[in-house]
Simulated scan of single mutants.
Amino acid sequence: MISLSLALCISAFGSLCLGMPRHFEQTFQRKSPPLLLRALRGLGWLLLGLAILPAIKALGPSVGVALWASALTIAAAGQALLLTYQPRLIMPVSLLAPLLVLPLLAV
């Protein structure tokens, strides 16, 4: 459950990054429609809100919120590094992070 929270945070920050015109152009080398930017930002905020649920379910409300804050920090730092050095990897990492965690949850 903790890994799912981190994966959702990674995807959320990827969506929030791509929801900014400058970062979208940096990643895809083209302008984006304003509606797409708004949708990406909304998806990012939704995923951030959903990321707290697995942490609270696994460890309870007090420790879960602290874990979620730690996951936010790690995910934001990782996305910032990707944006700085490999902006084209933001979308694949954001899409694959939750998918890679799903097999761990089945065990």
Results as ranks from 00 to 15, higher is better:
A7E: 00
L8W: 07
L8A: 12
C9S: 02
C9Y: 01
S11C: 05
F13G: 06
F13P: 02
G14Q: 07
G14W: 05
S15F: 12
S15M: 13
L16E: 10
C17T: 15
L18G: 06
L18R: 00
G19T: 05
M20D: 15
P21V: 12
H23N: 14
F24D: 08
Q26K: 12
Q26I: 02
Q26L: 11
Q26M: 08
T27L: 03
T27M: 01
T27P: 00
T27C: 08
F28L: 10
F28K: 08
F28H: 11
R30V: 12
K31V: 14
K31C: 10
K31N: 15
S32E: 14
P33L: 13
L35T: 15
L36P: 11
L37Y: 03
R38V: 07
A39L: 15
A39G: 11
L40Y: 05
R41V: 05
L43F: 10
L43N: 11
G44P: 08
W45G: 13
L47G: 05
L48E: 07
L48W: 03
L50I: 09
I52H: 00
I52W: 01
P54A: 03
K57F: 08
K57A: 11
L59N: 08
G60S: 07
P61R: 06
P61Y: 03
V63T: 13
A66K: 06
A66V: 03
A69R: 14
S70R: 07
S70F: 06
A71K: 04
A71F: 08
L72G: 14
T73L: 14
I74F: 12
A76H: 10
A77E: 10
G78T: 02
G78P: 05
Q79P: 09
Q79F: 09
A80Q: 03
L81G: 08
L81H: 02
L82F: 05
T84K: 15
T84I: 12
T84G: 15
Q86Y: 08
P87L: 01
P87Q: 01
P87M: 00
L89H: 05
L89R: 05
L89K: 02
I90M: 08
M91F: 15
P92H: 11
V93R: 13
S94V: 00
S94D: 01
L95F: 06
L95C: 08
L96M: 14
L96N: 12
L99D: 05
L99P: 11
